[in-house]
């Protein structure tokens, strides 16, 4: 597979390690009420779609960036890839 790295262009998937669902970006607040339930969901529950999936890849043999890759798990077509850092910052409301 080839991953379209947003800064480096198409790269061999063998340069990467795969972590899993990009929902891992949304880590709950460990000090908040209901944290146990929230963490249970966060750690164990996954949708596992046959189709478009947003997932985390680590460019281990590359620039060591984490990427959020949008990939169709059935056809393997990759629809896009972003720096996970950018996705995470945007989710937290923007400014660095």
């Amino acid at each position: 597979m080839l991953i379209p790295h947003p800064l480096l262009g198409l790269r061999d998937a063998q340069e990467f390690t795969y972590l899993g669902d990009a929902s891992l970006l949304n880590r709950p607040d460990g000090m908040a009420e209901g944290a146990a339930e929230a963490f249970y969901d966060y750690v164990y529950l996954r949708d596992n779609p046959a189709g478009v999936h947003r997932e985390l890849w680590f460019h281990e043999q590359g620039d060591r960036s984490w990427l959020v890759v949008t990939r169709n798990t059935v056809t393997h077509e990759i629809l896009g890839a972003e720096l996970a850092r950018d996705v995470a910052l945007a989710a937290k409301g923007g400014a660095q």
Binding site: L25, R27, A84, R85, A88, L89, K92, Q96
Partner: peptide, 18 residues
């Protein structure tokens, strides 16, 4: 060594990029 480094980069870039 490798997995922990990867884990730390995950925390840095994905969990607490701020």
């Amino acid at each position: 060594a490798g997995p922990v480094y990867r884990h730390m980069e995950f925390a840095r870039q994905c969990l607490w990029p701020e």
